[in-house]
Design a protein around this nucleic acid. Structure first.
Length: 845
DNA sequence: CGCGTGCATGGCT
DNA sequence: GAGCCATGCACGC
């Protein structure tokens, strides 16, 4: 059905939207993208004109989330209600702020709304498009026929998305600058408004929840299970095939579904409507084909449950893994007629920056299992989270995807909903003898519609991490900010909103070389770029100015599927570990999988610790050229040695701290001596020279005799390359932990440790140590590398030899570990996947 | 102890 | 209030 845009002359501005009942609506997946819906009629509309909003208006934009598509009222009413509610409360849903991120959107629900309370004359649309939509107005008359609308228009996210809150002093996270500096954004100027350009992909990106195909109990299916297929998909799916794809239902994966148990709970009504009837709890093996043509067999069964049934698909883990799905992602079930073959598609939640495929169709190709799981992505364009399916299909040279379209019979929403009545089809088409499948674990909670879905602290942290990751993607406006200081916090205030850059992967080679890998938004292939390249939100091979041979999408992928798999996996592992590190801050002593990774990276493939330095990392991905933090100013690994006379920042810092330490000790020593002398005067001298350095504020478990013995073994213990480092870190006493001292990544608490440790050290020993030249001390303590051979290592990560397994949570290493992990990912193949996988490393003591 | 299975429970619609 | 379903959990291997 064609919906004509109402001619109100101003429907594209929210002012008019209010008066005309039109609301701009943004997609759940494409928050920046913009459309309109007529809340009175439910008609879906949009415009392709620029300057929908003027600056003042934009400033008042709020993000509003629709409750869900399951409102009891029709969508129009729902929208209207939400709109009114929103007008009463100006609290933006997105409290985080400056930019509404996919994360935030993911947390909510299915449909988002942008509205505005602008009251001035906004620039109106000139001539709106007429959209094709698969919505019949009459559906809104039917309370059971609600349509979950979301519209996407191909607008680059960062370009168009407004500041969602007032430009108050509330800081946002900043990827750059000092910690106390925050980024603010002034009200978007017309530069923003002009971002509302839309394009020809308007039509095909409308995502519509469609009433399900015929089936038993179709009317009872909750709308949230209705398959949502974008009009874009439908339009793109042209086909001369005899096959017809009939979307059946879809389900957002719960943590349980995506978890290790491998059981996907099926909505009862859907299972009974579209899957073969089963009478025994054991059920039947069900053959389901995925989007890449791979056939899976799941056990379709049920459990008796309160006089009812609970249907599940068992053994879905491999499939879910292969699709890289997790909780919050959506799986779709369709039927290919006339074969009556069950098809399982998926739609990723939008936060998956790494790869966000959105495929709902299937090919008839036959991929091997291995190709699917490990190498399957070689041939499947990985559609960036912000690139459209349209683009992906258009740009794809993949015969698989082309094949996909053949099976879709509908264009412009004319899908055959009536389709073939399933029950008239041979159900055996799905059936197969059962088979088992291995599992891997993965589970993550998602946003909350219920208590169970509330993110716990872990997940909140993960969300936080996601936010932090997002910061990496923020591209500051080109114009220099004005700096405003508010309560000792510096804020960078920009006239323009930031934009999202495209995510990429940074890799550190054992040779010291750093690379950045980015995925083409068009073909999905990975290209290598210099590390300092800032990526725009969308990037294609054509923009590859650094490698002429790979400026075309037809050029082979720069990453082998294996590389990619390793990278993605290890990146995820790293993320997990980073999270764990955050949860268990600096007091973590056991050697973790991260240690194993780091150590493996340290050792390098050839096992020569020298070639790949301890801290082969210099500039971590978060930092950009020009960053002057301690990490980034370190000399690159392997570049030159630090001479004793070196005056570089790192060496100076080391020396300065050492001197400070020694001065402090000497001062204490003199104080002690004075005190001792005083005591002798008072009580006649009975005290020994050996002084308990304990003072009121010192560790209560200090034991002088123990100290002595420890000190006696100090050099020996420090030169060990075993887990004594753990003890070393744990006790923090009896030894001067230069590891802390030398870790220049500015961990104040480590300095505290240092004080504590040193204060508990025998005075004699202190005297002895303090009297030594720095170089002597370092050498005696196994730190000769710092003086002479170090040098392959940036001092920020110089570690005691015996401390290479000392993790301590090491937030300071996180940045580096990232690269190290990724380095490993690429070099793992070279080592023939020996034993350094994170999982294996995790269990290592 | 870890894992898979078969429910059982209880929050939510 | 009934039913759904996400998840917990006991039990057995």
């Amino acid at each position: 059905m064609l919906l004509e845009l109402l001619d109100c002359g101003g429907i594209n501005c929210a002012t008019c939207a209010k008066s005309s009942g039109l609301l701009p609506i943004a997609s759940d997946e494409r928050p920046s993208e913009f459309g309109m819906i007529n809340v009175r009629t439910g008609e879906l509309q949009s415009s392709t004109t620029d300057n929908h909003f003027d600056s003042d208006e934009v400033d008042k934009l709020k993000l509003i989330r629709l409750r869900s598509s399951t409102d009891d009222s029709g969508l129009g009413q729902s929208l209207l209600t939400q709109y009114n509610d929103t007008n009463r409360s100006h609290e933006p849903t997105n409290r985080e702020g400056v930019i509404n991120t996919p994360s935030a959107l993911e947390m909510g629900g299915s449909c988002y709304l942008l509205s505005s309370k602008a009251s001035n004359g906004a620039t109106h649309a000139s001539q709106p498009d007429i959209l094709k939509a698969n919505i019949a107005a009459k559906e809104f008359d039917d309370p059971h026929a609600r349509t979950d609308l979301s519209m996407t228009i191909g607008v680059p996210l960062g370009k168009s998305y407004p500041s969602l809150r007032d430009h108050s002093t509330t800081p946002s996270l900043s990827p750059q600058g000092p910690k106390s500096r925050h980024v603010l954004h002034k009200p978007p100027k017309p530069a923003f408004a002009s971002g509302f350009e839309s394009n020809a992909s308007v039509v095909s990106q409308i995502r519509v929840a469609r009433p399900p195909a015929e089936g038993r109990g179709r009317n009872q299916l909750l709308p949230r299970y209705w398959p949502r297929i974008t009009d874009q998909e439908l339009q793109q799916i042209s086909g001369d095939s005899n096959s017809t794809i009939v979307p059946l239902f879809e389900k957002v994966l719960s943590a349980s579904d995506a978890g290790r148990i491998g059981r996907l709970v099926l909505p009862k009504a859907c299972a009974e409507a579209y899957f073969p009837p089963i009478s025994q709890p054991e059920g039947l093996p069900l053959r389901i084909q995925d989007v890449k043509g791979k056939e899976w067999v799941f056990q379709f069964r049920f459990w008796p449950n309160n006089n009812s049934r609970m249907y599940v698909l068992e053994g879905v883990t491999p499939c879910i893994q292969s699709m890289q799905l997790q909780a919050g992602d959506t799986v779709t079930f369709s039927r290919m007629d006339p074969e009556a073959k069950l098809i399982m598609g998926f739609r990723k939640a939008s936060t998956s920056m790494m790869q966000d495929s959105q495929l709902a169709a299937v090919s008839n190709g036959n991929h091997s299992s291995e190709a699917l799981i490990s190498g399957g992505f070689e041939n499947v364009p990985m559609i960036s989270g912000y690139s459209s399916l349209l683009h992906s299909f258009k740009g794809s040279t993949d015969p698989q995807l082309n094949a996909l379209s053949k099976h879709w019979s509908s264009a412009s929403g004319d899908i055959s909903w009536q389709g073939t009545e399933k029950h008239g089809l041979p159900r055996d088409a799905f059936l197969l003898p059962g088979m088992s499948a291995p599992e891997r674990k993965r589970a993550r909670n998602i946003g909350s519609k219920s208590k169970r879905l509330l993110i716990d602290s872990q997940d909140a942290l993960e969300l936080k991490m996601t936010w932090e990751e997002l910061q990496d993607l923020l591209r500051p406006p080109s114009v220099n900010p004005s700096i405003v200081t508010v309560e000792d916090h510096e804020f960078e205030e920009y006239d323009e909103p930031p934009v999202f850059g495209k995510s990429s992967i940074f890799i550190l080679r054992s040779t010291g070389g750093q690379e950045q890998w980015v995925q083409c938004d068009s073909c999905g292939k990975w290209r290598r770029l210099p590390v300092d390249v800032l990526l725009p939100p969308r990037w294609t091979c054509a923009e590859n100015a650094w490698d002429q041979s790979r400026r075309l999408c037809s050029a082979p992928d720069g990453l082998t599927p294996r590389d990619l798999e390793n990278l993605l996996r290890l990146t995820k592992e790293f993320k997990k570990r980073k999270l764990a590190t955050t949860v268990r801050p600096a007091l973590e002593h056991e050697s973790s999988g991260l240690d194993a990774l780091a150590n493996a990276a340290i050792v390098g493939d050839d096992g020569d610790p020298g070639t790949t330095s301890v801290a082969a990392t210099t500039k971590h991905p978060r930092h950009r050229p020009g960053c002057s933090c301690i990490v980034c100013i370190q000399p690159p690994s392997g570049k030159g040695k630090h001479k004793p006379t070196c005056n570089c920042n790192v060496c100076m810092t080391v020396k300065r701290r050492f001197k400070t330490l020694m001065m402090r000790k000497k001062k204490r020593q003199s104080e002690r001596e004075a005190e001792i002398a005083q005591r002798k005067q008072l009580w006649g001298s009975k005290d020994e020279i050996e002084v308990d350095s304990t003072s009121a504020h010192r560790s209560s478990h200090h034991n002088p005799s123990e100290n002595e013995s420890r000190i006696g073994n100090e050099l020996e213990s420090q030169s060990q390359t075993t887990n004594s480092a753990n003890t070393f870190a744990e006790t923090g006493k009896g030894q001067i932990n230069l590891n802390c001292q030398l870790d220049l990544n500015c961990q104040p608490d480590r300095n505290e440790d240092l004080k504590l440790g040193s204060s508990q050290t025998s005075m004699m020993n202190l005297l002895r140590v303090a009297s030594q030249p720095l170089e002597t001390y370092l050498k005696q303590n196994g730190l000769a590398s710092l003086v002479s051979e170090q040098q392959a290592s940036p001092a920020g990560h110089v570690q005691l030899q015996g401390a290479t397994t000392d993790n301590e949570g090491q937030p300071s290493e996180d940045h580096c570990a990232d690269s190290e992990i990724q380095e490993m990912a690429l070099e793992k193949d070279d080592t023939d996947e020996k034993d350094s996988t994170p999982d294996q490393g995790e269990g290592d003591p």
